[in-house]
Amino acid sequence: MYPFVYHKATSVEDARKAFADADDAAFLAGGMTLVPTMKQRLAMPSDLVDLNAIASMRGVTVDGDILTIGAMTTHHQVATSSIVQKFAPGLAGLAGTIGDRAVRYRGTLGGSIANNDPAADYPGAVLALSATIVTDRREIAGDDFFTGMFETALDEGELITAVRFAKPIKGAYAKFPNPASRYAIAGVFVAELGDGVRVAVTGAAPTVFRVPAMESALARNFSPEALEGIGVDEQDLNTDIHASAAYRAHLVSVMAGRAVHAALEEGSQSGV
């Protein structure tokens, strides 16, 4: 690993300043991706700004139909939060399937979506639950946030402080995990919101995407049968050592059906 300067930020303002004053800084959230990447020398920040001591960036609150989760809230905290389990059981279920137990203790919501790994789980929840990304300088609609593989709408040095999720009438996440890494080979979050149904697919393509044909079919009839004959085009999907594009296209349909089935069962979690 290349040497770097370490900063322990104690407030959002403190983190902003440390980042701005450095040559080529990176924010350190859970570090579950950044630290391994630095070991491989794929990332070589001059400075690391550790966000773990910023208390205002952690925690879960509900205000009416809006759930706000601090960006530094860990996957473990989301998975085990009684507030999240009640507000959106599918979201708590999703968090409980990320990585493994040790990863969930450290990995964070903000870190996951800022990295926008094509196989990460949270981007599916952001699109399906019509989320809003709150940063240190603005709010970004979830639909506009993920712009490409490992790319987001965040500007240089822009820090996610929280994510707001809409309350689903029902919703669930189903994923087919890579058996070694637990990353999604294909994951589908289906949610019925007040203004329609959203179907978000992660793991299958360079970045998370919605499936309008499934959404309109489920808006008419929220059942697994409504999805029959509706698939995604394998032309747009990834092929790698884990799965071909055709296999991923098949998995998307299967996971979408499982997610709908799970959403119909009260208090359901993921289909893993």
Binding site: G31, V35, N52, H76, Y105
Partner: peptide, 20 residues
Amino acid sequence: TVLFDDQAIKACTLFAAQAD
């Protein structure tokens, strides 16, 4: 794996500085 404030985490993915 070690227990870090009672949570079993992987000590290879954390800097010693973070254990302050």
